[in-house]
Design a protein around this nucleic acid. Structure first.
Lengths: 347, 347
DNA sequence: CTGAAAGCGCTTACAG
DNA sequence: CTGAAAGCGCTTACAG
């Protein structure tokens, strides 16, 4: 049984006894068309199960009503799970797109790929949302190239001085400062920091800046021996970092890991080493992943508002596409106190 | 500064001194075209930063190289998080699509919506992947309608007798049987089941069938008072179910929750009631969400291979689109023993 | 308010 | 191996 071919606007025009242009207008609800004609056309369209061919429409109008989300991953972590934080962002971005009447194309990119503009150039999407672009310094050229090509895009991440693009990020400095102050308030004086502090990972760097600011405000010196570089955000890296820190021998009574995954890995390493959290060491993270509340002990952390973030990313991008100017935006971070910091078990 | 307009195949043709048809063929690597011509055209294309306009191409070829993933959610749980299991499926589906050279459109649908065929009809996607369609009985008509319209789609879920469509699912009966046998092997004799057992939730029903089969095989009678209907898979529902079960007064020494989220909610309710897991009650779930291993105690559960699932869904769909026949496929389930079942703490 | 016509940028028979 | 031409299904000036 051959299927009936899809109905086109010409089929509707024929049955309605009007021209195809009128059909097009009527379906779009143009005020130019007579109300009766419009109703008639729409009735026939419904009856024929008609849908506008988006390819034809996009070709003609030169925009597709679609946004593309580019998720970057480290080529190393090929088959492991996607960072749960990005997954949660993906959820909120998808919802925000739907609310704004746009479709969302999702794509995983290898960091190494030549990803600039692929989607927008091919006209499959009107704009791009960038998530997890890896090393910021390396990405910077590509971002600049995107800007130069007038690609419409927004980036999730730290707001960096002199950045070429528009981004939405959480207030990493404030979050880092708040959580560090909390640890200091609990009497911790030697707090380790797990995470890169360079411009390669501006989010981590900003969290570290908050960490430093909190120490300064409390009049506590930071021991450089307590910082350990970690560029990737995985449990494995957190575990290894903690082991290295322990091996270093410099005593510590607190750990601020720049992400929850790092913190959870660190907690495992502490447990392996027979150190009790939070009695001997307070541990805090950043992100508030779903699993943070399930960790043992439950992880004190900094929550990023992914719902607001998704909404803002989509909103900003749509404005850019419409030609409006938008500024990078910082979302507030909120600390979430659980057991791992020892708030209820201060020394 | 006005941007240079995007280059088209005509621009390339002009510079290469050939016709536009030849450009089109050359870019596609057609064997019809002279190798030198091809190289020349491709060089110019690269230099001009040319990309094929996918809208034009899709319009002409009548397919888009795009697949659509439809994620259904309960309208009740509007702003809560997406089920982490689906998120993980989404990750593997995205990867599988990329590997097959297809783009993925992601869409959240309200269960109530009139979702049949929207995407394929509009020619934005060549086929559909359905995830979490809610009540199977209610969805069935729509699935049949999709089949009737010759929409290409595959569904993630239970394989149901006489179903109109192609689906990929895990072997819920086998998984349910294996994990229940494990509990019985640990000496548990009164195992509660949290989950719907009707055709409305065929996955849960199949897990329950496995539960019943394991009891039968072990010669243990099932007390109907130990089953509690739960249609939605959320912590809240699991929590409430457990409370209701406790209130019922029928004693139990084990709980098989039809999903990890239900199991985690149930464990919280048990803790609230002062019942110790696994010493007094063994608890097991289904799915093996990332958070399962972080629960306290770590949750024994049944793992679904989301990677294989994503691959298979995409593979099956692509075959359907190509006109091949494919059969519904069941993936093996694997039990993952952790602390919550009391494997190392048998009475 | 409506229609005839052009054109978005491709792919692909058709003819050479 | 190459080119001229048709056509995919729309939207939108343009003319009435």
């Amino acid at each position: 049984m051959r299927p009936k071919a899809r109905a086109t606007s010409f089929d509707i025009a024929f049955r309605a006894g009007v021209s195809q242009s009128t059909v097009s207008r009527a379906l779009r609800g143009s005020p130019l068309v007579n109300l009766d004609t419009q109703r008639k056309v729409q009735a026939i369209a419904r009856q024929l199960n008609y849908t506008v061919d988006k390819n034809a429409s996009a070709l003609r109008r030169q925009h597709s009503g679609t946004l593309a989300l580019l998720l970057f991953e480290d080529p190393t972590s090929d088959d492991s799970l996607i960072n749960p934080f990005f997954l949660s962002m993906l959820g909120s971005i998808t919802r925000a797109c739907a609310r704004q009447g746009h479709d969302l194309l999702v794509s995983f990119q290898q960091l190494s790929n030549d990803w600039h503009a692929e989607y927008q150039e091919s006209h499959k999407a009107d704009g791009l949302i960038l998530l997890g672009y890896g090393d910021y310094v390396e990405a910077c050229d590509k971002l600049a190239a995107l800007v130069a090509q007038q690609t419409h895009f927004v980036r999730w991440g730290a707001i960096v001085d002199g950045q070429p693009d528009v981004s939405v990020g959480c207030d990493n400095v404030q979050g880092g400062q708040a959580i560090t102050s909390h640890l200091l308030g609990l009497g911790r004086r030697r707090i380790a920091f797990i995470g890169d502090t360079t411009e390669h990972r501006p989010e981590f760097r900003d969290r570290h800046r908050g960490y430093a600011a909190a120490h300064k405000a409390a009049g506590v010196d930071v021991d450089p021996a307590l910082q350990f570089d970690a560029a990737d955000s995985t449990e494995q890296v957190g575990h290894a970092a903690m082991q290295a820190l322990i091996a270093r021998g410099a005593p510590f009574d607190g750990v601020f890991a720049a992400s929850d995954l790092l913190a959870i890995g660190a907690m495992h390493a502490l447990a392996d080493a027979g150190l009790r959290v939070p009695e001997q060491v307070s541990v805090v993270g950043f992100d508030d992943l779903p699993m943070a509340s399930f960790a043992t002990p439950a992880l004190t952390t900094v929550q990023q508002d992914t719902k607001a973030a998704g909404e803002m990313l989509v909103g900003h991008l749509l404005k850019r596409i419409a030609g409006e100017d938008v500024a990078s935006t910082m979302l507030p971070a909120r600390i979430v106190i659980r057991r791992s910091c020892g708030a209820r078990a201060t020394p």
